[in-house]
Computed example of a mutant assay.
Amino acid sequence: MILEVAILQVIPGEEQNFEKSFAQASAIISGMKGYIQHELHKCMEEANKYILLVKWETLTDHTVGFRESPEYQEWKALLHHYYDPFPTVEHYELLYKSA
Rank of each mutant, 00 (worst) to 15 (best):
I2K: 11
I2M: 03
I2H: 12
L3M: 09
L3Q: 08
L3G: 03
E4I: 01
V5F: 00
V5N: 06
I7F: 02
L8I: 05
Q9C: 07
Q9P: 06
Q9E: 15
V10L: 05
V10W: 07
I11N: 08
I11K: 14
E14M: 10
E14V: 04
E14A: 11
Q16N: 10
Q16G: 07
Q16T: 10
N17M: 03
N17W: 03
F18H: 09
F18R: 13
F18V: 08
F18S: 09
K20W: 00
K20I: 04
S21T: 06
F22Q: 11
F22S: 04
A23L: 00
A23H: 02
Q24N: 04
Q24W: 00
Q24H: 04
A25P: 04
S26L: 01
A27S: 07
G31D: 05
G31Q: 01
M32L: 02
K33L: 07
G34K: 14
I36K: 14
Q37I: 14
L40Y: 10
H41Q: 12
K42S: 10
K42I: 13
E45I: 06
E45P: 07
A47L: 09
N48V: 12
K49P: 08
K49E: 06
Y50N: 07
Y50A: 09
Y50P: 05
L52Q: 12
V54P: 01
V54W: 00
W56F: 05
E57F: 02
L59E: 11
T63I: 08
V64N: 05
V64S: 05
V64C: 01
G65H: 05
G65C: 04
F66G: 06
F66K: 07
R67W: 02
R67L: 08
E68D: 14
P70F: 02
E71V: 11
E71D: 12
Y72W: 06
Q73G: 13
E74K: 15
E74N: 15
W75N: 12
W75F: 09
K76F: 09
K76P: 11
L78S: 06
L78D: 11
L79T: 12
H80K: 13
H80P: 10
H81S: 13
H81E: 08
Y83F: 11
D84Q: 13
D84T: 13
D84P: 03
D84F: 06
P85L: 08
F86E: 05
F86L: 02
P87L: 06
T88E: 11
T88D: 12
T88L: 03
V89Q: 00
V89F: 01
V89C: 02
E90M: 12
E90P: 04
Y92V: 15
Y92D: 10
Y92A: 13
E93P: 00
L94P: 09
L94G: 09
L94I: 12
Y96F: 11
K97I: 09
S98K: 15
S98F: 10
S98C: 08
A99Q: 15
